[in-house]
Design a protein around this nucleic acid. Sequence first.
DNA 1: TTGCGTTGTATACCACAGAACATAACGAGG
DNA 2: CCTCGTTATGTTCTGTGGTATACAACGCAA
Lengths: 120, 120
Amino acid sequence: MRKDDKGRYRGLTLRVLGRGRPPAMGPGKAELIERIAETGSISAAARAMGMSYRRAWQLVEALNAAYRGPVVVTAIGGERGGGARVTPLGRRLAAAFRAMERKASAAIAADLKRFTRQLR
Amino acid sequence: MRKDDKGRYRGLTLRVLGRGRPPAMGPGKAELIERIAETGSISAAARAMGMSYRRAWQLVEALNAAYRGPVVVTAIGGERGGGARVTPLGRRLAAAFRAMERKASAAIAADLKRFTRQLR
DNA sequence: TTGCGTTGTATACCACAGAACATAACGAGG
DNA sequence: CCTCGTTATGTTCTGTGGTATACAACGCAA
């Protein structure tokens, strides 16, 4: 299945809703987790995604509040003293979301192709 | 698979992206099409969904612009002179979207259940 | 002819999301 | 001690999505 330049699956978008109405996981949060895992820093991840640090930090806060355990743990300080690490739970969540994206995409690939053909 | 009070599938939300980035179909537009088909009126559908007429009309405009043919055709006038009808294409699109929702939901049901268990 | 319920616009307002900017506190390394 | 790069937080601004409101044009029925 093809992806766009942000690694998202083309043609469809999937979101997982939390117990309240707001989405607890989606393409944006998943990518943010992955970028933090790569870079070890919220700010570096935000820069890589062209997102303000504040917004990224708020998403991290929302993630940590939404799940039963912390998704990202942080430490203040710079020059590799501080930073952010993704917890095993966070890695599992991001991976599970990507897997669901793949499965959902595969399950409706044929339908989606026919559907898309109706687009202008 | 359980649905919420609006007939949407719980736990996940699916959107089909158009050729540009903006979504060409999602739960909201699908329901709007269904309501218009039921009521024969944009304004009645909007009332039923608790949505402003203007917004509903804009969504209809967007739908008609997004696909190769009209999704909803309208006639000015009242007292059953005017109104809105969903074209066969529109009915096919809404039905196809609902089918994709069902298939995607079924395909990831087990994963989603495990995922949701991690929510607070 | 009058009234009602439509579609179709225009305009004004408002609430909110997110950006932009500023600043503090902190930790490691030079 | 100083600097750099973090996290963390507050404040302000702006764009925009959506509502609210008003109104014109219209068609059918009474």
